[in-house]
Design a protein around this nucleic acid. Structure first.
Lengths: 248, 248
DNA sequence: ACTTGGTAGACTGTCTACCAAGTGCCATGC
DNA sequence: GCATGGCACTTGGTAGACAGTCTACCAAGT
C-alpha cells in the first residue's frame, strides 16, 4: 500500500531516476529523525518549524505529517499540532502479536511457493547469520536477522502481508531497539529449523515454527522489560521541560 | 492506524461533536463513490474537478487522494494525477489470504480474552444471522455476517489486527461484492462451530475453524469466478462497458 | 510505414499570502 | 488555591500563481 510500486519490468530494465515528490522526501526525513531519536517521543512538531528546518514550504510538510499520522508515527491534534507518538504500555505487545500472525502466515506461504533459488538464499542467510553471531558481531547478526525475516515475508508473494509486516516491523524496531540483539543464541537454531520446514514444503510446520519463534521474541521483550524497569516510575526525573528551542 | 482514535473515556462520556476535518469528509465521500461505482475503475481523477464537485478547494482533495493512494484505492501518477485503482488478477486472492491470517489470529485472541458479555453477543449474532438466512433475507444475513466478523476482530483487542482487517475487508467487498451472499448455507453452521470454540476458550480450535471458514470463502470466490468467466478472453467482446450505473 | 521533432493543453507539485477558528498558557483577580 | 479572561500560537482551509511534466496530436523527414 504505502509503496509506489514500479511494477514488473523486463528484467534488468530500470527507469531513469525520477525526482521524488517533496512530500515523500519529507516523509522519509521525518521517519528517520523519529527513529534515530532526533525528534524525541512526545515532542511537539510545528509545521513551519519543520518546513524551515527542511527548507520547504508548509504544504509538503503537512502532507507528510498526515501520512505519518495515518501510520501511527505521530498524533495529530487539531488546532495544536503533531506530537511524536508515545507508545502505550501494551502497544509493543500488540505489535509483536500482529507480527506473529503476519510472519507465521508468510512462512506458510513461503513453504508453499519456495523455489530452488529461494531455498539457497535462505540457507545462505542462515549460515551468514550464525557465523556473525558466533564471531560476536552483533550488528551483523541483527542485520542478517532482519534480512532473513524480510526475505521470508517476500517469499510469501502476498503484497498485503509484505506491506503490513514491513509497517509493523519498522514500528517494533523503533519502539524497542534493544530487543534485537538480546537473544542471538537460540534464535539462529530456530531459524535453521524454520528453513528446514520451508525446504520440506511443510506448510503447517513452517507456520508453527515461525509462530513459536516470534512468540519467543515477545517473551524476551517482556522479560527484558521486567528486569530493566522493576519499579514503574511515572515521575519525570529532571529537565523541567525546557520549551523546545529551534534546532538549526 | 487509519482511524483518529478517540481514546478511552470514562464510560459514557462523549466529546461534543467536533466538526470533522474536511479532508476526512472528502476521503469518505471518495471511497463511497469508488465503492458504489460512481467513480469507475481506471478513471482519471482530477483534483480541481473533484474539488468543484464536492465544493471544497484543492487542498483537502489532495490530502484525501494521498491517503487513498496509501491505502490502495487509487494510484497516483506523478505529474499526471490519480486513477481509480484497477485490481490485478491475483489481488483478490491475496487479499483473501491476508484476511484469513488476520481473522484467524483474531479468533485465537478472541478465544483467549472473551468475556461473558462477548459470548452472549456472539451467540446472539449467530442466532440472528441464521434466522435471516433461513427466512431468505439475504441482505440481513450479509450484514449480520459482517457484524459477526467485525465483532470477533474487535474482541481480539489488538488494534493493529483490527485496523488491518478493516482495511482488507473493505477492499475485498469493493472488488467482489457478489461474493458475500453466495454461501449462506454452510457459512452459518461454521459460525456456530467457531463461536463454540471461542466459548470453550480453545484458542487453537478457534483459529483453525476461522481459517477453514475463510478458506472456504476463498474457494467460493474462485468457483464463482470460474463459472461466470469460463473462458479467459482478453478481448473485449461487446457491450461497451456495461459498468455499474451511478444511482444519482 | 515508421520515426522524429515540435506544439499545445492539461494537470500536478510547490510556493506564497491570508484569514478564521480552536488550543494551550499565563496573569490577573478573587 | 482556583476560576476567569485574554493573548499568542497553530492548524485548517482558501485563493492564486508558476514551473515542470505528461499526453496527445500533427507535420515533416527517412
Amino acid at each position: 500500500m504505502t509503496t509506489t510500486s514500479t511494477g514488473a519490468e523486463p528484467a534488468g530494465v530500470r527507469h531513469v531516476k525520477r525526482p521524488q515528490p517533496l512530500r515523500e522526501s519529507v516523509y522519509e526525513a521525518l521517519t528517520e529523525m523519529i527513529i534515530d531519536g532526533t525528534l524525541e517521543r512526545g515532542r511537539h512538531l510545528v509545521e513551519v518549524e519543520l518546513a524551515g528546518l527542511l527548507g520547504v514550504s508548509r504544504q509538503p510538510v503537512r502532507e507528510a505529517l498526515q501520512r505519518l499520522n495515518n501510520e501511527g508515527w505521530v498524533d495529530l491534534r487539531p488546532g495544536f499540532g503533531a506530537m511524536v507518538h508515545v507508545p502505550a504500555e501494551d502497544e509493543v505487545d500488540q505489535l509483536l502479536a500482529a507480527r506473529a500472525a503476519l510472519e507465521s502466515e508468510s512462512a506458510r506461504l513461503a513453504a508453499r511457493h519456495a523455489t530452488k533459488e529461494d531455498l539457497a538464499k535462505l540457507k545462505e542467510l542462515c549460515k551468514v547469520g550464525t557465523a556473525f553471531h558466533e564471531s560476536g558481531d552483533t550488528d551483523g547478526a541483527v542485520r542478517t536477522n532482519g534480512e532473513l525475516h524480510a526475505f521470508i515475508t517476500r517469499m510469501s508473494g502476498n503484497r498485503f502481508l509484505i506491506d503490513f509486516a514491513a509497517q509493523v516491523d519498522r514500528r517494533v524496531r523503533w519502539y524497542y531497539t534493544p530487543l534485537a540483539p538480546v537473544r542471538g543464541a537460540a534464535s539462529w537454531r530456530e531459524h535453521s529449523r524454520l528453513v528446514k520446514a520451508i525446504s520440506d514444503g511443510d506448510e503447517d510446520k513452517a507456520a508453527q515454527t515461525m509462530r513459536e519463534h516470534t512468540e519467543h521474541t515477545r517473551k524476551a521483550y517482556h522479560d527484558l522489560r521486567a528486569t530493566e524497569a522493576p519499579a514503574e516510575q511515572p515521575a519525570e526525573p529532571e529537565a523541567p521541560r525546557r520549551r523546545r528551542r529551534s534546532l538549526t
